[in-house]
């Protein structure tokens, strides 16, 4: 387990928990949440970069050594996502970008077609692209072929805390896609995160589940533990599941030949 490192986009990450930075009541909390979660990577919406208002600019609250992954929240098309990614690169000097293209303001579901287009443009420009998407094998292949460094299917609509509703589709993605799968959005309980890791996800990403808890810090720590537990179980491999009971002292145990 000590040597279990997630190598992705040129980064070597010990933590497999990515956290989001939106929805917290105060930027001062970010430091404590990062500490409690032991996360090494945090996503930040470029639309919230605010260099004119230092106290409201989240970038000023992220500790040294933590990787900032700008996201393109607010983009409705591939063109807008590309524009935002370029702004991010100029502003914070990172090649990391999480593409988030949403054109439906009720369920906030990502637009896979536009995302694949943006993946292609940005990957060619040298960005390390993490693609937030609706769990779909064809779109995931397109994004992988376009150069995405990670595929990030949603577990449920963002902000809902509804859990891993897309379990079967995520299972297929883990099986068929070579690029790391990171479940993003919808995970509400620590057990949801644990389950993703048990299934073989490379990492999970959590925001609302932490920010909507009355105790952010304790919940951040709980997610850290859940991700570690799930990852350990995946590496250890669970025993076979049987439909029939197997007694520890079987009735036919006396048979020797």
């Amino acid at each position: 387990m000590k040597d279990d490192v997630l190598s992705i986009a040129g980064l070597e990450l010990k933590s497999r928990l990515f956290i989001g930075s939106g929805k917290f009541p105060n930027n001062n909390l970010i430091t404590d949440i990062i500490k409690a979660s032991e996360s090494q990577i945090i996503t930040v919406a470029v639309r919230r970069f605010d260099f004119e208002n230092p106290r409201e600019n989240i970038l000023n609250f992220i500790p040294q050594g933590i990787y900032i992954m700008p996201n393109t929240s607010g983009a409705r098309t591939a063109d807008e996502a590309v524009r935002i990614a370029r702004i991010a690169k100029t502003s914070v000097g990172t090649d990391l970008v999480k593409i988030e293209i949403i054109n439906d303001n009720k369920y906030l579901l990502p637009d896979n077609y536009q995302t694949a287009k943006a993946c292609e443009v940005l990957s060619k420009e040298g960005f390390n692209v993490f693609a937030y998407m609706n769990a779909d094998i064809y779109a995931a292949r397109d994004m992988q072929n376009a150069g995405a460094k990670a595929i990030m299917p949603l577990g449920a609509p963002i902000g809902t805390n509804r859990g891993l509703k897309t379990e079967e589709m995520v299972r297929i993605l883990i099986e068929e896609i070579d690029t790391p799968i990171i479940v993003d959005a919808g995970l509400g309980k620590t057990s949801d995160a644990c389950k993703c890791m048990e299934m073989g996800c490379a990492a999970v990403m959590v925001n609302t589940a932490i920010s909507s808890s009355p105790n952010f810090i304790l919940m951040a720590e709980a997610f850290k533990d859940a991700v570690i537990a799930g990852r350990k179980a995946y590496l250890a491999k669970h025993g076979a599941v049987s439909s029939a009971a197997r007694a520890s002292s079987p009735l036919t145990g006396f048979l020797r030949d």
Partner: peptide, 8 residues
């Protein structure tokens, strides 16, 4: 939290 900027 007051947000002053929410647009790219």
């Amino acid at each position: 939290q007051p947000v002053m900027k929410d647009m790219f």
